[in-house]
Amino acid sequence: MNTLEFDSLHLEFGMKRILSGIYMKCTTGQIVGLLGRNGSGKSCLMQIVFGTMPAASKSVRFNNTRLMENQLAKRIIAYLPQSDLLPPFVTFTQALKLYNIDKEKILAHFPELANCLERKSSEVSGGQRRLFEVLLVLYTNHPFCILDEPFSGLMPLHIEKLKELFKFEKHRKGIIVTDHMHRHIREIADKLYLLTNGTTYRVKTEEQLVELGYLNEL
């Protein structure tokens, strides 16, 4: 079982403090949900943990070993950004080949993607592209994946299927997921955190989301 843990994370833009007092932990077999208002720093936090955004200080640990500058080369974390993942000139088949993923794995759950495989990502609908990107990151061999707004632009049927897939795939990897569709996140998350005022709070009851100002009412 693998563990991904991060804390002592500080990020400031000029005089404005964005992140401090962060602590999160995810292990294989867990879906960890991260909620937060727009501009609370969720995407920055995820990119810092992924290793593509510099921070004033950070401690990201994989199995109690601190990840340093070369963490990307170790392929421990796969990351789905909020924006498009696929460059517009890459076809789905090319992406699968580069990521070393068998297309049958994807078609088994989403056969409707079969007619998109030879198309470039710029030639398919936003929903189809997003669905494929989520699957691409989910099926990597990285022990952890971070998904930033995986449900945005997806139709409800696909969201439900993806939620089932997350629950199945968590047996071989840890999944950290954030999305504004908080009901879906609350439903699938084994552990829930709320990021507010630059700090993460462990959420154990739904009432806490109201107390911490994330929701007006349940």
């Binding site: 992924f50 290793g51 593509t52 070369n70 990307l72 080369a73 170790k74 392929r75 796969a78 990351y79 950004p81 924006s83 498009d84 993942l85 696929l86 460059p87 890459v90 992406a95 580069l98 990521y99 990151v137 990597t140 990285h142």
Partner: peptide
């Protein structure tokens, strides 16, 4: 540089 994430997942740093 928003396309870099695709390659970051493949173990490529910005410098690479």
């Amino acid at each position: 540089s928003n396309h870099f994430f695709f390659y970051n997942n493949l173990g490529q740093s910005r410098r690479a």
